[in-house]
Structure formats: C-alpha cells, structure tokens
C-alpha cells in the first residue's frame, strides 16, 4: 500500500517577464488501487502538476510538499523519483535520436530494478508486453519515439509502465491522439497493471470516453492552478455536458 500525498503545492515557471505562478495550492492524496481523474481547461496547469511531481527542471517549487509514503519526493533527483515508484506517461513523449527502444528499455529496467534483467527471459518479456499493446516488435529496433505517430508514442509510454511496474502512475492525456481500438488496448494495459500491481493512478484527460474503460474512483476539476471541485464518476458526465464555465472565474 502506497500513498502519494500532495499538499498545498505551489509551482512557478521562469518566463522572460519573470516568474509566473502556475500552481496555486494543489491538495490531492492518491492511494494504491485508486484512480483519480483530473479534468480541466487548457492551460489550467495539469501538465505542470504532472511534471513537477516527476521533477522536470523547468518548474520551480515555491511552496507545499509532495511525499510518497512519507518520503519527500521534491528532494529527490528525477531518476530517484522513478526508482521510488513514480511514473509519468507524458503528454508529449520525447524523441531520443540514436537510442534504440530495446536499449532504452533495458537500461531503464536495469536502473529501476537495481539489476540487469536476465538475458534469457528479457526478450520474451518485452515481446509479450509489446504484443499485449498490439505493438509491432519492429519498434524495439527503432529509435526512442523517433518518427512514431502520436498514438504509437502513447502505446510506448504504457509499454514502459508495464515493464517498470510503478506504484503510482500519472497519465497525462494518454488518451489524446488514440484511435478507438488503440484507446481500448491502452486502457486494458492500464487496467492490467492496476490489477497486478495495485497501481494508484492520476489520470489527466479532457474526455469521458477513456473513463468508460478506466473507471475513476474520484474526479477532480482543475482550474487556474488548483483543484476546485471533487466528486465521483458522475462529475465527469456533468463536465462533459456543461463544460468548465462555472469553475472559470475571470
């Protein structure tokens, strides 16, 4: 049982006009096995929340705390956070020229597990995980995300999650850019990991469609850098009908 505890998190980015406050006091607790959907208008700070937890250097923490099972996450380096059991499926996965997917996966799994995977079982493990996500095995020899379509990048993110077996995963618009079939395949992947690992999930999305596959326990409305309302799955339907107008203050 793990708990990610976000308390009064405040985050700024440096801009040419100086520091700009993006997150204005985010409070959220995610336990193992729970799925929290985060919905909110463009630019409200959802990705900022995701990146800040993962430790992206662009963001400056100006207040609050993030802990995983009581341990200060904000004091950890980026790789330590991953080793502690956090995983971020990115909205825009990054291309890394000249680094093959298979080399990347092996290096990453070795770092997270603390030892190199057994040569005998490793190839099979990757093949199986790729097959489960309907990914062509040829992707293993391609460079990380280079020339991948939007949907292929998202599958590749979930593939990594499957192999790294995190405790808490943040999925930042993993559903965007997926066709109907891919959405189902990816959702099944997430549910599989959730079941086998008792994964806690922060699911950032704009659409209720993915929530039909991945049942949220909680839905949070995000606006202007904080959570402004929380409810059950029914809140998502209400948002889909009414939009965010009532939460956005001019």
């Amino acid at each position: 049982m793990s708990t990610l505890d976000i308390k009064n998190l405040q985050v700024a980015v440096e801009t040419e006009e100086g520091s700009k406050q993006i997150l204005r006091g985010v409070d959220l607790t995610i336990n193992s096995g729970e799925t929290h959907a985060i919905m909110g208008p463009n630019g409200s700070g959802k990705s900022t929340l995701a990146y800040s937890i993962a430790g992206h250097p662009k963001y400056t923490i100006t207040g609050g705390s993030v802990t995983l099972d009581g341990v200060d996450v904000l004091a950890m380096s980026v790789d330590e956070r991953a080793k502690a059991g956090l995983f971020l499926a990115m909205q825009y996965p990054v291309e890394v020229p000249g680094v093959s997917v298979s080399n990347f996966l092996r290096t990453s799994v070795t770092a997270i597990r603390g030892e190199a995977p057994k040569v005998r079982t490793w190839v099979g493990e990757v093949k199986e995980a790729m097959a489960a996500l309907s990914m062509d095995p040829a992707f293993a020899e391609r460079n990380v995300n280079e020339g991948f379509s939007g949907g292929e990048k998202k599958r590749h993110e979930i593939l990594q999650m499957e192999l790294l077996k995190p405790k808490i995963a943040i999925l930042d618009e993993t559903d965007s850019g997926l066709d109907v079939d891919a959405l189902r395949v990816v959702s099944e992947g997430v549910n599989r990991i959730k079941e086998s690992n008792d994964l806690g999930i922060m699911l950032i999305t704009h659409y209720t469609r993915i929530l039909r596959y991945i049942q949220p326990d909680f839905v949070h409305v995000f606006s202007a850098g904080r959570i402004v309302e929380a409810g059950g799955p029914e809140l998502a339907n209400k948002l889909e009908e009414n939009g965010y107008a009532e939460y956005v203050t001019a």
Binding site: H56, S77, V78, D79, A82, F104, T107, A111, V144
Partner: peptide, 11 residues
C-alpha cells in the same frame, strides 16, 4: 531528452 531518460530511472 535528459529529463525523459531520467524519468525512467536512468541516472
């Protein structure tokens, strides 16, 4: 690129 790799546990 560095952030992406590090976020996967790579030092």
């Amino acid at each position: 690129q560095l952030f992406y790799l590090q976020s996967r546990g790579i030092p």
